[in-house]
């Protein structure tokens, strides 16, 4: 009898993030007219996609016991680099000639830059044993500074390109649709599927959990801890670059302040989705649902006309409540383990 009630509680707690999702969705469906229309939902998911992509990268990092504060700044920098390449190209002084890349090359440059910044984060953390918090905090300032330096603080406007420069099509990334669904949502779905699979089914994914759970044991078991750690920051950097491209494409402009505080929403979504900041516990799927919960709350509160000041307070309360439930869950699991 007792055991049965116990397991029901356990199941409810294990499904807490789904329950949270259903609750916020139901609440806003009731209070916001037209909330459940397809058009509203597509816009909502489009907003969520941005945070979800960053959350996936962030969750990989947190699962190893790290943190990546440079995410938002890298979004800004990679957007600026892409914007600059399209808007003003690369001046080659010797020939008095301006080189323009096509859009695919521009996007490739940004993604490679994001990966590179991530690698530098991981390199500094593993090579000099510096706390991830410090390294990525430093990188946050560096990347943001570089984004501002790129244009002297101004925006690269009108990123439509021109046919004679062979660099048109960039706005399509943000505005285009397939089967009525924006590309950014398809990108989120594809990347989520791939990285959920990677986390659950590949040796690399297993190693991520092992490193976060017990680095020493992982190392002595033959896990290449350094490579795993560098890799998760590279993933986070790539996600940031993809978001940088999507955002600047949606705005058809690149602004150096883009992405400010994005890392905070990503951390919040990850924690809301059940990821332990100590590493080793959590799931990519849960974190993505966490991003949805935050996204629904953001958009829902805007539609309800909740003041933006209150929105922040409410978001903060929800995050803290989520962590309290998390603590409760580990206590229940500990007692269950004792009982076994």
């Amino acid at each position: 009898m007792m055991g049965k009630r116990f397991s029901v509680v356990n199941i409810l707690i294990n499904l807490r993030i789904f329950i949270a999702l259903i609750v916020v969705f139901t609440v806003f469906s009731i209070f916001v007219p037209n909330f459940r229309t397809p058009a509203t939902l597509v816009i909502l998911v489009k907003h969520v996609a941005i945070n979800a992509l960053l959350t996936i990268g962030m969750t990989y990092v947190i699962l190893t016991g790290g943190i990546d504060l440079s995410v938002g700044a890298v979004v800004g920098l990679t957007g600026m680099i892409a914007g600059g390449l399209i808007y003003e190209g690369v001046k080659i002084e010797a020939f008095g000639y301006i080189l323009y890349f096509n859009v695919w090359a521009v996007m490739a440059v940004s993604v490679v830059l994001g990966a590179l910044i991530g690698y530098v984060n991981g390199f500094l953390i593993t090579r000099f044993s510096i706390a991830p918090f410090i390294v990525t905090l430093g990188m946050m300032y560096i990347a943001r500074g570089a984004a501002l330096l790129r244009s002297g603080g101004s925006t690269f406007p009108n990123l439509t390109g021109s046919p004679e420069r062979h660099n048109t099509g960039f706005p399509l990334l943000g505005a285009g649709t397939f089967l009525g669904i924006p590309y950014s949502i398809w990108i989120m779905i594809a990347i989520s599927a791939f990285l959920i699979y990677t986390a659950r089914k590949t040796p690399f994914g297993r190693h991520v959990y092992a490193v976060g759970g017990n680095e020493t044991a992982a190392r002595l078991s033959g896990v290449n801890v350094v490579r795993v750690k560098r890799m998760v920051y590279v993933i986070s950097g790539i996600m940031s670059a993809i978001v940088g491209l999507i955002v600047s494409s949606q705005l058809v402009a690149a602004h150096p302040a883009t992405g400010e505080a994005f890392e905070m929403d990503a951390i919040a979504a990850s924690v809301l989705g059940g990821t332990s900041l100590a590493g080793g516990r959590g799931s990519i799927g849960g974190a993505i649902i966490g991003a949805f919960v935050i996204g629904i709350m953001n958009d829902g509160m805007v539609m309800m006309g909740v003041s933006s000041f209150w929105q922040r307070v409410i978001k903060g309360v929800v995050i803290i409540a989520a962590v309290i439930v998390d603590q409760f869950q580990s206590e229940v699991q500990r007692r269950a383990a004792l009982a076994a």
């Binding site: 190693h207 976060g212 759970g213 017990n214 044991a217 002595l220 080793g280």
Partner: peptide
């Protein structure tokens, strides 16, 4: 506890942590 096991993971994941390579088919376990 501190060097031998990853206490947060299930028994299965712990037991194959050193030999995962053996179980890889294509990309996955």
């Amino acid at each position: 506890k501190n060097q031998g096991l990853v206490v947060s993971l299930p028994l299965l994941d712990n037991m194959t942590l050193s030999s995962l390579r053996k179980y890889v088919r294509l990309f996955s376990i």
